[in-house]
Amino acid sequence: MYYAVTIATLITMAMALGRALLGPTIYDRLLAANMFGTKTVLLLSVVAFLYGRPDFLDLALVYALINFIGVIAVLEFIRERTGGDGADKATGE
């Protein structure tokens, strides 16, 4: 049963990668990257039990943390680069 879930997750990761390659906007790619990261967390959790190695769960948690911080950091970077008006509206009332 773990195998089925692992394969489904891997296929979805491939589809997210396809969306990241197709684009068309940078936000689509970022959404795909976020999805890929979430699926990696799920995959790591399942693989931990598939191979009976519970220490993979620590990796899953760290990956969840890094994925979230990474997406926010890239968004911040894009906003800095695309100009001031967006940044003003988002931070101040």
Binding site: M1, Y2, A4, V5, I7, A8, T9, I11, T12, M13, A14, M15, A16, G18, R19, L31, A32, M35, K39, L42
Partner: peptide
């Protein structure tokens, strides 16, 4: 639950495409 989760993951990926 695992089977349903696998199905939902697949459908979500399909939707993203």
């Amino acid at each position: 639950m695992l089977t349903a989760g696998g199905v939902f993951v697949f459908i979500g990926g399909l939707g993203a495409l």
